[in-house]
């Protein structure tokens, strides 16, 4: 036990552990690539069988993608959308977590505010967006705020569960040893909430970027949603697909290189996960 641990700390995996998971990962990656290529092939066949502007071939989408990235438009609009996604995500997570934890810890407040949460959970995203633009004007604050408001009730519900599941014994230990408020949040509260934070950020990013496109379509002069609206009016399906695929790729990169490594880091204490 201590031997394996010591090796892991030096950053070199124990002998025999090195090859097996790598092979497994490679075969998994290969399957994903094959599966995606298969989808492309199917799409290509369909586009050749029914040639139409409504269903461009993968090659046509690739051409559109190259054109948009050569002009720089693609990166500009991707950047704008990504910025809005991040801003809305941070606002939603911060507000939703604080409210959710407070409700989870205070039974009376929870009973009073629970109907509000249920109400906001069921307000359609489109209504929030339209109202935000009417009340606060066609500006960035209204756009990001509208997206955040759509996500906050979900965060509240998940984080409220997390707060209800907190173990009071750790809190009592902290009281006895007079551990300060900030340290309690960092060392006791956040680690216990981590699984709930992870779950809600996972679903959060996916939901938020879809809503951001709608916000952009309805009232922003740039971003992927704006471009999709533009090409919808031009009936340029190849460009619509090019933007969509580019943004999906960006979100996959975020998931693979930001969300997953952070999750691995914050759950490193769960023993055999390595």
């Amino acid at each position: 036990m201590s031997l394996a641990r010591a090796r892991r700390q030096e950053g070199e995996p124990a002998e025999g552990m090195r090859t097996f998971p790598n092979m497994l990962m490679r075969s998994k990656a290969l399957t994903v690539v094959m599966s995606l290529l298969g989808l492309c092939l199917l799409w290509h066949l369909a586009a050749t069988a029914w040639p139409s502007r409504a269903l461009p071939s993968p090659a046509a989408v690739w051409v559109a993608l190259m054109r948009e990235s050569a002009s720089g438009d693609l990166f500009f609009h991707l950047g704008m959308t990504l910025g809005r996604v991040m801003a809305a995500f941070i606002v939603a997570m911060a507000l939703g977590s604080v409210i959710g934890v407070l409700l989870g810890l205070n039974r009376r407040a929870d009973r009073f505010f629970d109907p509000w949460v249920v109400l906001f959970l069921n307000v359609p995203a489109l209504v929030v967006i339209v109202l935000a633009y009417i009340w606060f004007g066609l500006n960035e604050i209204a756009a990001i705020g509208a997206v955040a408001v759509n996500k906050i009730p979900n965060v509240i519900v998940t984080m409220r569960e997390g707060a209800r599941a907190l173990d009071p014994r750790y809190w009592e230990m902290a009281t006895v040893y007079r551990i300060g408020r900030l340290e309690r949040i960092r060392h006791i509260l956040l680690p216990q909430l981590q699984p709930y934070l992870a779950a809600t950020s996972r679903s959060g990013i996916a939901l938020i970027w879809k809503i951001v496109l709608v916000v952009e379509l309805l009232g922003r002069p740039n971003g992927v949603g704006f471009q999709i609206h533009l090409y919808f009016q031009l009936f340029d399906v190849a460009s619509i697909l090019a933007y969509t695929l580019a943004f999906v790729a960006v979100m996959l990169v975020v998931e693979l290189f930001l969300v997953q490594p952070f999750e691995r880091y914050s759950t490193r204490w769960r023993g055999n996960s390595a």
């Binding site: 014994r169 040893y177 060392h187």
Partner: peptide
Amino acid sequence: GRVAAVFQEPTLLPWRTVEQNVRLALPK
């Protein structure tokens, strides 16, 4: 005066090592 307690359960923070658990209980 400081007090310390050993509870029925060890009540160590699972996400901190033994040493980090001990040091966290010390004044800054």
